[in-house]
Design a protein around this nucleic acid. Structure first.
Length: 229
DNA sequence: CCCAAGATGGTCT
DNA sequence: GACCATCTTGGGT
């Protein structure tokens, strides 16, 4: 494993996303350390970047107070509140000034399972299934990591600077992993179809979250199959 | 102003 | 599979 550099995330999200598979996010929050081996991610582009505009991205409407971190320096973490409840984590990717992020959707807990379980309010001792589920899905991943919206939004995972009681570091794997790809989970409309195969995961890993169609995505998928091109 | 919808997860039927 | 929690945002009157 080697420490990630700023350059690792300067490419646009679609290129940077696969290199986060098998990588580890190490967090120390309130003096509790957790290491998460990332098994599932999704790329989200800014308007007008990448092979096509991304209608599924928080950046699609331009810069707002909520998504401003996506325009910042790569390697910082964009932490947003999902459904008013869950803190979800992206690694900001792409050059500074260009919006982009890679959502960390699932991981295997390598170290700090006790701290993660405490945050998840999981019963101890952990069953095999409970251990698998500790960081399975973006909301659970955020909870297990201890990082929270809004006070950890924008934390720098390259230099590992402390922010409001938290430190985050990214470590990249030495050996490549076997990668699969497909539509993003829970994304509405055409952005959630295989016209946007922007979800990447480690093939066969049990911690990868189950697929779910977004609103109207299944219909859009059927229509695009009828009239391809 | 009002309201629907969301990069979700837990619980109940 | 349905419903709910809870808060931010965007779009329509």
């Amino acid at each position: 494993m080697r420490r990630a550099t700023r350059d690792d995330f300067t490419p646009l999200p679609l290129e940077a996303a696969p290199r986060l598979l098998g990588a580890e996010l190490r967090t120390v929050v309130d003096a509790a350390e957790v290491r998460l081996r990332i098994t599932e991610v999704e790329a989200y582009h800014g308007q007008g970047t990448g092979p096509t505009p991304d209608p599924g991205s928080h950046a699609r409407m331009g810069r707002t107070a909520r998504n401003a971190t996506m325009w910042g320096e790569p390697g910082h973490l964009y932490v947003y509140l999902s459904h008013g409840i869950h803190s979800c984590i992206n690694v900001v990717c792409g050059p500074e000034g260009v919006a982009g992020g890679v959502l960390l959707r699932a991981a295997e807990v390598i170290e700090g399972a006790d701290a993660a379980a405490r945050r998840r309010r999981a019963a101890l001792p952990l069953t095999a299934a409970a251990r698998r589920d500790l960081a399975r899905g973006p909301g659970r991943f955020g909870q297990a990591s201890g990082l929270q919206h809004p006070r950890h939004d924008g934390i720098d995972a390259i230099i590992g600077a402390e922010l409001n009681g938290a430190v985050a570091e990214l470590w990249l794997p030495d050996a490549p992993v076997e990668i699969a790809s497909g539509p993003r989970v829970g994304v509405a409309g055409v952005a959630g179809t295989d016209a946007f195969p922007w979800r990447f995961w480690i093939d066969g890993d049990p911690t990868v979250s189950p697929f779910r169609w977004g609103r109207g995505a299944q219909l859009a998928q059927a229509e695009s199959r009828q009239s391809p091109g």
